[in-house]
Amino acid sequence: ILLVEDDPVTQAYLAAVLEALPATVDAVASAGEAMRAVSGGGRGTHALWLVDAHLPDADGAGLLARLRPVAPWTPAIAHTASRERAEIDALLAAGYERVLAKPVAAKVLRAAVEAALQSRSAVAEAGVDPGWNVAALRRLFRDELPAQQAAVNLASKAGRRRDMENVLHRMRASCALVGAQHLDAAVRALQRVPGSGKALDTFNQAIAAWLRRG
């Protein structure tokens, strides 16, 4: 696991929690070091990136954009002391599947990491070829989202559960291909409780976060 954290105390704590999983932790303190760790090790070296949203030489969204061309399929989790909804949404829109609030409880970190690693395994088992143009796939995915969102909302309003499930099922496959774990979680939640207004709101918010990526 690549841990990017510039505060020595926080870095030591997070590394200790991760090592107890157990996991091998590559801890660095800047975006530059993170880029060297990923580029130097080759594609796929790390199973997961855990990134501080505020680094001395970059923000979390900017660093993720630089890392993605090197390792398109590596899941990423951000951690931040901010409680601002706009900042959290921006990190999710940038491609982080989770944003953890500092100080991060050990059990919360462990659960988030285990979920991210499971999603990575699911992509690998699907036989997805990392040679695909990931950026193009994500653009296509984003272009399809408004129509899918409209179809889900219309089916929900009309009480057509079968139509709703058909769209959600297709979205699950697409989410896996582009690494949209945050949106996939919202889709799965809506599948579990298709009549829930709260689950539908979360679904719509997750789509909005993807569309804001532009």
Results as ranks from 00 to 15, higher is better:
residue 1 I to V: 13
residue 2 L to W: 02
residue 3 L to H: 05
residue 3 L to S: 00
residue 3 L to W: 09
residue 3 L to K: 04
residue 5 E to D: 08
residue 7 D to Q: 13
residue 8 P to I: 06
residue 12 A to G: 05
residue 12 A to Q: 12
residue 12 A to I: 07
residue 13 Y to N: 07
residue 13 Y to P: 00
residue 13 Y to C: 06
residue 13 Y to T: 03
residue 15 A to H: 07
residue 18 L to Y: 04
residue 19 E to G: 14
residue 22 P to F: 11
residue 23 A to K: 09
residue 25 V to Q: 08
residue 27 A to W: 01
residue 30 S to A: 11
residue 32 G to F: 10
residue 33 E to Q: 15
residue 33 E to R: 10
residue 34 A to F: 12
residue 35 M to G: 08
residue 35 M to H: 13
residue 35 M to P: 02
residue 36 R to A: 12
residue 40 G to W: 04
residue 44 G to Q: 00
residue 44 G to V: 07
residue 44 G to E: 01
residue 45 T to C: 07
residue 47 A to V: 07
residue 48 L to M: 12
residue 48 L to C: 08
residue 49 W to Q: 03
residue 50 L to F: 02
residue 50 L to N: 00
residue 53 A to H: 05
residue 57 D to E: 14
residue 58 A to E: 08
residue 59 D to I: 00
residue 61 A to N: 04
residue 61 A to Y: 09
residue 64 L to M: 14
residue 66 R to S: 15
residue 66 R to E: 15
residue 67 L to P: 05
residue 68 R to A: 02
residue 68 R to M: 09
residue 69 P to C: 10
residue 69 P to R: 10
residue 71 A to Q: 06
residue 71 A to S: 15
residue 72 P to E: 08
residue 74 T to V: 09
residue 75 P to R: 01
residue 78 A to P: 04
residue 78 A to D: 00
residue 79 H to S: 00
residue 79 H to T: 05
residue 81 A to M: 01
residue 82 S to F: 08
residue 83 R to T: 14
residue 83 R to M: 10
residue 84 E to C: 13
residue 84 E to W: 15
residue 87 E to H: 04
residue 88 I to W: 03
residue 88 I to G: 04
residue 92 L to Q: 09
residue 94 A to K: 11
residue 98 R to T: 05
residue 98 R to Q: 10
residue 99 V to Y: 01
residue 102 K to R: 11
residue 102 K to F: 06
residue 102 K to N: 07
residue 103 P to W: 03
residue 104 V to C: 06
residue 106 A to V: 05
residue 106 A to T: 02
residue 108 V to G: 06
residue 108 V to H: 12
residue 116 A to C: 03
residue 117 L to Y: 05
residue 118 Q to W: 12
residue 118 Q to A: 13
residue 118 Q to E: 10
residue 120 R to Q: 06
residue 120 R to F: 00
residue 120 R to M: 02
residue 123 V to A: 04
residue 125 E to S: 10
residue 125 E to Y: 03
residue 126 A to V: 03
residue 126 A to P: 02
residue 126 A to Y: 15
residue 126 A to C: 08
residue 131 G to R: 08
residue 132 W to N: 08
residue 133 N to E: 13
residue 136 A to Y: 06
residue 136 A to P: 01
residue 136 A to M: 15
residue 139 R to M: 10
residue 139 R to Q: 12
residue 143 D to M: 13
residue 144 E to F: 07
residue 144 E to W: 10
residue 146 P to W: 11
residue 150 A to M: 06
residue 150 A to G: 09
residue 151 A to I: 00
residue 151 A to N: 00
residue 152 V to N: 01
residue 153 N to R: 04
residue 155 A to F: 07
residue 156 S to V: 00
residue 159 G to K: 05
residue 166 N to K: 14
residue 167 V to N: 01
residue 168 L to G: 02
residue 172 R to A: 08
residue 176 A to D: 05
residue 178 V to L: 13
residue 182 H to Y: 14
residue 182 H to S: 12
residue 184 D to Y: 07
residue 184 D to K: 03
residue 185 A to G: 15
residue 186 A to H: 00
residue 188 R to N: 11
residue 189 A to C: 09
residue 193 V to F: 09
residue 193 V to D: 15
residue 193 V to G: 07
residue 199 A to Q: 06
residue 199 A to R: 03
residue 201 D to S: 15
residue 202 T to Y: 03
residue 203 F to H: 00
residue 203 F to R: 05
residue 204 N to M: 09
residue 204 N to I: 06
residue 205 Q to W: 09
residue 210 W to C: 05
residue 210 W to K: 09
residue 213 R to E: 14
residue 214 G to A: 15
